[in-house]
Amino acid sequence: MVTVLQTENLEKNYMLGNIPVHALRGVNLEVAEGDFVAILGPSGSGKSTLLNLLGALDTPSAGSVRIGNSDVSVLNDSELALLRRRIGIVFQFFNLVSRLTARENVELPLSIANFPRSKRREIAEDLLEMVGLKDRMTHKPSELSGGERQRVAIARALASKPQFLLMDEPTGNIDSKTAKELMTLVKDLNTKHGMTIVMVTHDRTMAKYATRVLELLDGQIKKEACN
């Protein structure tokens, strides 16, 4: 079993004026290759905070995050940038670049990683086809539905062939029918392509698609269940 992600006593505190907010209070977590982990928790439990730390976008107040075999806290800005290219991340609020088309959004991580134009295009088109947006390539995010935007975000996250995929509330802003279709797609990614996935959600029905479900409450993991 290969460990792709590991946290040790991970803590994150925010200061709101003089009052400390303990968003994470010692999270221990290990994700192995091929896992589909759902982190289930109510709003404000620290899910996004945890996911950002796993995505090397934030620095912990205490404890450590290991991605692959590197400790994130010892990396410099440039090494962090390179590390982020190997992580696929889908944000809670799509976070697509509004002036770029769906295809250009998917191409963005490839363009950042210096892929030549034709190669970029090919990969982006394949991925958009895979998520069922073949005929929406040249649409701007504002011309797409919530579910379609989320698919574009997933395609973008997959573009750089990441080692694992992080998803923050992927179904949070779409109706249940569309959410179901999306989760089927995500599930396929895990089962058919062996993609390692960590998904955070407050929705128990979505957590059902995962192979492991961790419950996060007040910044701590309360229990783990297997589906």
């Binding site: 982020r84 976070n95 950042i112």
Partner: peptide, 13 residues
């Protein structure tokens, strides 16, 4: 936000 996205996708400073 866009800068955040670019950096999250691994763009160097």
């Amino acid at each position: 936000r866009e800068i955040g996205i670019l950096k999250a996708l691994g763009m160097h400073n």
